[in-house]
Amino acid sequence: MRSDRSSAGWPLKIAAAGGLLFLHLPILLIFVYAFTTEEKSFQWPPPGFTVKWFAVAWNRPDVWEALTLSVKVAAIATAIALVLGTLAAAAVSRTKFFGREAISLLVILPIALPGIITGIALRSAFSLAEIPYSMWTIILGHGTFCVVVVYNNAVARFRRTSGSLIEASMDLGADGFQTFRYVVLPNIATALLAGGMLAFALSFDEVIVTTFTGGQQSTLPIWMLEELIRPRQRPVTNVVAMLVVIVTFLPILAAYYLTRDTDQISGSGK
């Protein structure tokens, strides 16, 4: 009997192609409009193409200030998330105690809540404690969901790491630090690296929580939003948007390649 897989495959391929176009065609338009000669509005087809907006974006100090703040916030929030997320994952996965599942739920709750809820809660807490808005309030806000990303990656790797390796290390005379350095860390390193990259990407392009915790500070996504509301040079906004796409896409892609096929490996470095 002849299989009909080939005939059934074409509709599925067409549907998949349509879905990909629906998702990514607007992003491609950003790249196109970054090269348009029209300054005030978007036209299709573009009246012409130029690369001058890259030089304009390069020479605008407000772009550099927003970019610098975004990188600082994302880097520090990721570092905090790596420490807290790893410790929480180790406690939940390697020990048994009453309320462990409840604690696990509370750790991942911030990323499940809408960003506006998190933003309002943090703003209320900062106002109540009379904490002035600054870069550090943004970092605290981003840390709430960055910790979850690291935690999810780390706890999955901890659960796939054989406990006999740690027991063997301790039996051979290694102390806790040596066991962590030579046994635990090599086994969870790629999970932490992937979690850190995802956390950096999420923090770099966060808008809602930053709106409530930033005060007068403008990260790069906030700068882009303000430029769209009160446009001066629309193509510059698209040039910066290209940068955001690249900066967030590369760590996500790297995280994917670091963590793929790891479900088949237990007790090894990957």
Rank of each mutant, 00 (worst) to 15 (best):
M1W: 06
R5F: 07
G9T: 15
W10I: 12
L12K: 05
L12P: 13
A16L: 08
A17D: 01
G18A: 11
L21P: 03
H24Q: 04
H24A: 03
I27H: 12
I30G: 04
V32I: 05
F35Q: 10
T36C: 09
T36P: 14
E38T: 11
K40E: 01
Q43K: 09
P45G: 04
G48H: 04
T50G: 09
T50M: 13
W53P: 01
A55W: 04
V56P: 02
N59F: 05
R60S: 10
D62F: 01
V63G: 00
L67V: 06
T68D: 07
T68S: 09
L69I: 06
A74Y: 00
A74T: 08
A77D: 02
T78A: 08
T78F: 07
A79E: 07
A79D: 09
A81T: 05
L87W: 07
A88Q: 11
A89E: 04
A91C: 14
R94K: 13
R94I: 08
K96A: 07
F98Y: 05
R100W: 05
E101L: 11
A102C: 09
L105H: 04
V107D: 05
V107I: 15
I111K: 01
I116E: 07
I117T: 10
T118L: 11
T118C: 13
G119I: 00
A121K: 02
A121H: 03
L122T: 00
S124V: 14
A125Y: 15
E130F: 09
L140A: 03
G141V: 00
G143E: 10
G143T: 14
C146G: 04
V147Q: 02
N152H: 09
V155W: 02
V155G: 03
R157N: 04
F158P: 00
T161W: 05
S164G: 15
L165E: 00
L165I: 00
I166A: 06
E167G: 10
A168V: 01
S169M: 00
G173L: 06
G176V: 03
T179M: 06
Y182Q: 03
Y182V: 00
Y182M: 02
V183S: 00
P186T: 11
L192M: 13
G195A: 09
G196R: 01
G196H: 01
M197P: 06
A201V: 12
A201Q: 03
A201C: 02
L202W: 13
S203T: 04
F204Y: 12
D205F: 02
E206R: 02
V207P: 04
V209A: 00
T210L: 03
T210P: 01
T211R: 05
T213M: 07
Q217F: 02
S218W: 08
I222N: 12
I222M: 10
M224V: 05
L228P: 15
R230T: 08
P235M: 05
T237R: 14
N238H: 15
N238T: 15
V239I: 06
A241I: 07
A241T: 14
A241E: 06
T248D: 11
L253T: 12
A255P: 08
Y256C: 12
Y256L: 12
L258T: 03
L258W: 07
T259H: 10
T259A: 15
T259C: 15
T262K: 15
S266D: 14
G267N: 12
G267H: 11
S268P: 07
